[in-house]
Amino acid sequence: MALLESTNIPSTLIKRGKSEKNDAASRLRMRESKEMVFKGIFLISSLLSVVVVILISAFIFKEGLPFFKSVSVPEFLFNTRWKPSSDNPSYGVLSFVLASAEVTLLSLIFALPISLLSAIYLSMYAKDRSANVIRSTVELLQGIPSVIYGILGIAIVVPVVRRLFGGNGYSLLSASIVLSIMIMPTIINVSESSIRAVGEDIKLGSIALGANDFQTITRVVLPSAFKGIMTSIILALGRAIGETTAVLLVFGNAPLFPKGLTSMGRTLTMNIVTDMSYAEGVHMNALFASSMLLFISILILNFIVVALTHKGRKR
């Protein structure tokens, strides 16, 4: 970044003589060094994010990798027996992985229709005032902390599930319902922008051929917005997989293989949070190995999002 060299002294100051020229030069040098210092500070700040990600990976892997000295990867991933405190300890996380997968997928199934349809309504039909109301509502949903979602789940969702489906209410179904509400804002926001971005000209082309709204939307608009909608789904998946507190409060936290909608279960995140308070040694390493698994899954999802969004730009 070249600085403008202001070695020209304003005429009113020339009278001050030679000393003024020296002062001006030294002032300039000071400003230049200040510039270098600040540039350095800004640069280091931006690099901090990079450093943090690397550190997080390093620390998690450092605590998690040693685990695989005692337990093999398949034993870890494909075993449903999690009994770290027994005489013959076993560290199989399959039940948790499956529970996480089930609750995530189920919440997506619940959330997707409402979110997508609302996004379509928002971007194509809502008038200004109703659009604002809907958007504010979505923002509100987004701002509710997970612990409060958990509390509301306990008070509203769990009793209803208990009454309608039996069991004690703390279940896969309850967790999925709560989680689905939590991920709706993500899907709605990103999908809405993608649908908005679809060109007006092809919408007109479809209407001019006699298509009704349903046909135009399903055959032209949604396919065009597909990448964006997929991105929103993957972002929502990431959010759901990483959620801890809300599911902790409504899933029942039983380390069982989740058999049905009303069974209790424990996700990978719940397991980490629950056991960490008293784990030590191999047990603790196992929990960090679980964190590694979580971390890697998130990285993969991130990768997919990048691939999706960059492919579009190449055109």
């Binding site: 000209d201 007109l204 001019a208 051929l209 006699g210 032209v220 065009s224």
Partner: peptide, 18 residues
Amino acid sequence: LELRHRVGMVFQKANPFP
């Protein structure tokens, strides 16, 4: 819908679907 079936339109800027 039926009207637009009978009366078609071509636009100034070509708008093929993706």
